[in-house]
Design a protein around this nucleic acid. Structure first.
Lengths: 173, 173
DNA sequence: TATGAAAGTCGCTAACC
DNA sequence: GGTTAGCGACTTTCATA
């Protein structure tokens, strides 16, 4: 077996990203994920130093975590207010139907709005929780009104964020 | 106007991070923030190439954006399910009082829970929206019950996420 | 199937224009 | 904002357990 591309990695290869299978990671893998959740720009040598291994195997582990879909990407965290988006609101949306086509049409519609940052389907049928950002109060009112005008929307409850005391990316490790 | 060094950028100097003032960024700054929101591990040379400037001024801009608090940090985005956190829920919490000490005690309490990832105070007084992750249904039930037992909590409405169709970090640019 | 050492390449970043 | 240049990090290759 000379072909290096055919190496198999059973635990990490299983399932497409998002498949949902729980994958066994050793303590070093977990530490790598944890460190990169906190500081995504940490250099590989620093990451290797912290995890107690040398740089090449550390880099290989990061690559594998990316290929397995466990690490999906790296993003800069920005200050929304300083960029002109001073308001954040959540909206609880009720749809008149739980037909798949109606739900998907709603998701497709709000995905087109740049102000909509998250869209979660909520248990119980026909409900969504969406997170939006707005430039000011007028903009926020406009967005709320536009939400009520999306086809099949029968209920919009806005939850305006006054203060965010906690905003942790990622998951516990 | 030939002297290219005399350009002024008063906006970036104003205010401490989090101050809330809207800051004027030129088109290159915006592009830098946008690119780093999408790919926080992009090399500085690549970032410079995309923005049409050379590497050193590009790096200086990134540093300034960090110092101004516009870029707060960099984080790996992980797949919660693949790491064993297969459930996400939001909870709308009602407190019996809007006294500052009560609100802060609640925030301090949930900040101690690793499963609580976000905590937002909602307009109207005494209400919070928190986002949690859970390992399974039993864990989720436990968390919901524990939320009702936090001092001064009088109402807990759980919104269990079935599907997340959109999850965009950052803000529109 | 993993790590670790060595080396070449590339990016980062200070100093200067 | 650009250019140069020195330094350090990244990443491949190969030997090893």
């Amino acid at each position: 077996m000379i072909d290096r591309d055919s190496e198999d990695r059973p635990a990490l290869q299983r399932g497409a990203p998002g498949g949902g299978a729980v994958i066994e990671l050793d303590v070093i893998d977990r530490q790598i994920v944890d460190e990169l959740q906190r500081d995504g720009r940490m250099t590989n040598v620093e990451l290797a130093r912290r995890t107690g291994i040398s740089a090449p195997p550390c880099l290989r582990r990061v690559r594998r975590l990316e290929e397995a879909g466990i690490i999906r990407g790296f993003h800069a965290e920005v200050d929304a207010s300083l960029l002109g988006w001073s308001l954040m609101l959540f909206a609880l949306i009720g749809l008149e139907s739980q037909k798949g086509s109606v739900l998907e049409a709603f998701e497709a519609e709000v995905a087109e709005w740049p102000e909509v940052r998250e869209c979660h389907m909520i248990r119980g049928g026909g409900d969504f929780l969406v997170r939006l950002v707005a430039r000011d109060a007028a903009h926020q009112n406009l967005l709320t009104r536009r939400l009520t005008e999306v086809p099949h929307v029968v209920r919009v409850q806005t939850l305006q964020t006054i203060r965010t005391s906690l905003d942790r990316a990622g998951v516990p490790l």
